[in-house]
Amino acid sequence: MSRTTLTQFVGRVLPPLAPMLIWTFGMELLVRKGIVDAWIIPAPFDVLASMWNDRSEIFAATGQTLISALAGLGFSFVIGSFVAVLLAAFPWFRRAFYPYAVFFQTVPIIALAPILVIWFGFGTPTVIASSFIVSVFPIIASTLLGLESTDPALVDLFRLYRAPRFQFLVKLKIPFALPQVFSGLRIAAGLAVIGAIVGEFIGGGGLGALVDAARSQQRIDKVFAAVLISSVLGVILVGSVNLLSAWVLGPWHASENKKL
């Protein structure tokens, strides 16, 4: 690594790292000195220690939450984009169902979760349903917006050559919508993790249940450990969507490539 690339690397990595280091060591100091009570905010190194001591339990819970969130996000993507295509294609379908799609955005999931338990029982299906409900709307809304932002001149061009309806969708509308689909997916990815954890609070399993149990045992270090892991999980999911988006849109879309 040459001197300039090293400087660049430090310049990029240091700014986001600095607040975390300051927080970690500062908090550690405040708790050790007794200025902040450990039962309000645990010492960061206690959190790390609890993460290590309960690693097998936390690891299993994280895997469970990840699978539920991925399944919820997967259902959201498949069902959400299919619904958006129908909404864009048929005005009557849109008038009939779009108001109900908005319902998914506004529903208080914490209130709905007990109903999900009645329907799906305790366990994974309830968690996946909760994750799906929370994450489906951004995908519907963004995909719909994307499908409707098609360049009207290109619509004319397709009409001029009498393109069949299916070609309109596959060769024009869907590719045009892709950047919007990804921005919806990015929002949905974070929400899918939240939805899964909320579902687990009521439906059991995963990091949600682990947080709930640790709270009732007054294990605040463990609560913090689980919360930390769950936000890392969200970041990983959103990051994966970003990678996918760069891979798909990379060669042509302005949002992914400024160099062209």
Binding site: A153, L157, P175, H253
Partner: peptide, 26 residues
Amino acid sequence: SFVFQESHLLPWSTVLRNVMLPLELM
């Protein structure tokens, strides 16, 4: 055939694919 005020090409397709488009649609 119609030529618009601006080029209105498909940004995700190569130059060749853009020109093939009318024939493919037909």
